[in-house]
Amino acid sequence: MSAGQPVLLLAPEDNVLIAVRDLPAGQRLVDGGDEIVLPDAVPLGHKLARRPIPRGASVIKYGASIGSATRDIPAGAWVHLHNLASDYLATAGAGDRP
């Protein structure tokens, strides 16, 4: 992530960035050599896609999967409840874990 951007990259392998202030739709970001234009507004502390994330792929934050995309997510799009779902089975002691 280039310095001076209003987003945070928590781990190099992440496919999401974190807004460090409220970002409006149309905001331009530079990630490495690539320019990202935000199709959606992204509030402070929320996630946006660093690159396209296909439906079913893991969303990676802190270098770890935090769930799977429930639809195709274009680069720059806000990532939240409408396009990301948990893979976690909150059943204590109930067997298979990833």
Partner: peptide, 29 residues
Amino acid sequence: ARYYTTLGHGSFAVGNADGGLTTQEEKSM
């Protein structure tokens, strides 16, 4: 998880989502 369930604690609250957290595993991360 069993202990906190017995004590009546949920783990993921609506307010977490307002702050930008989407999933249980993200909050814990």
